[in-house]
């Protein structure tokens, strides 16, 4: 049995989760504070990867990041490097797919903080950013942490978008879900059993922890 897929999955998911935690927290703060026309449209757009089939999300990412893509094209011209079929592509796929979960949980947590607390801090002279740091974050951290855990769970289970964007290259982009598919397809059942058991155990642990911190989302 090879430990490659497990280690790769952990590396990819941890990186993706770190990105998602930072970006998702900023997005959640922005959305919780913003009042503008079309807010609900923006929210829906951000949540789209949650309901789209992952292969569709992956397809969009290929269009965007491919050698001739909107972003990928410029990047290739400047650096000669393309993200497709690299382990970094797996990070991007996992991040994009788990981003909505993080935003949703964090936004719910931030919005559930009593507005009087925020007003009170404002009247005591604190800027929005200071109030966010000293009052909102400490009061909303449980929901935010739950969001980070769920994002990680979603990232480590990512299959469809990863396959589209990173392919399934043994030793390079075969994260656990992809390795399970490959093992089962080639009849390597002992490897498949083991990977399935590990992924299940990990997911159960993370889900339990996330539920412990969040009563509102799950």
């Amino acid at each position: 049995m090879s430990w490659g897929p497990l280690l790769l999955s952990l590396k990819v998911s941890l990186l993706a989760t770190a990105l998602v935690a930072a970006a998702g927290l900023l997005a959640a703060f922005a959305l919780a504070n913003a009042r503008f026309r079309g807010k609900s449209l923006v929210e829906s757009a951000l949540l789209l990867p949650m309901v789209l089939p992952p292969t569709v999300t992956g397809y969009y990412l290929v269009l965007l990041l491919g050698r001739h893509g909107l972003l990928g094209g410029s990047l290739y011209r400047w650096t000669g490097w393309n993200v497709l079929f690299t382990w970094q592509a797996a990070v991007v796929a996992s991040a994009v797919v788990s981003f909505p979960i993080m935003v949703r949980s964090a936004q719910t947590a931030i919005e559930s903080v009593d507005p009087e607390m925020v007003d009170s801090s404002t009247m005591l002279g604190y800027t929005r950013a200071e109030t966010a740091l000293y009052v909102v974050l400490p009061l909303a951290w449980q929901g935010i942490l739950a969001g980070i855990m769920l994002a990680f769970t979603r990232a480590i289970g990512e299959f469809g978008a990863t396959l589209m964007l990173a392919g399934n290259i043994p030793g390079r982009t075969d994260t656990m879900p992809l390795a399970i598919y490959a093992s089962a397809a080639s009849g390597d059942w002992s490897q498949a059993h083991l990977l399935v058991a590990m992924l299940t155990a990990l997911s159960v642990v993370l889900l339990t922890a996330a539920r412990h911190y969040s009563r509102s989302v799950l």
């Binding site: 009087e116 607390m117 404002t122 009061l139």
Partner: peptide, 30 residues
């Protein structure tokens, strides 16, 4: 509002639950 030098006591007091009594009062002395 931050620069108005207005003290505001809210209906439900709006004390910060994650801070002690002393920390709540000190918080006002930004």
């Amino acid at each position: 509002p931050q620069e108005r030098r207005i003290g505001y006591v809210f209906q439900h007091h709006a004390l910060f639950p994650h801070m002690s009594v002393l920390e709540n009062v000190v918080y006002g002395a930004r």
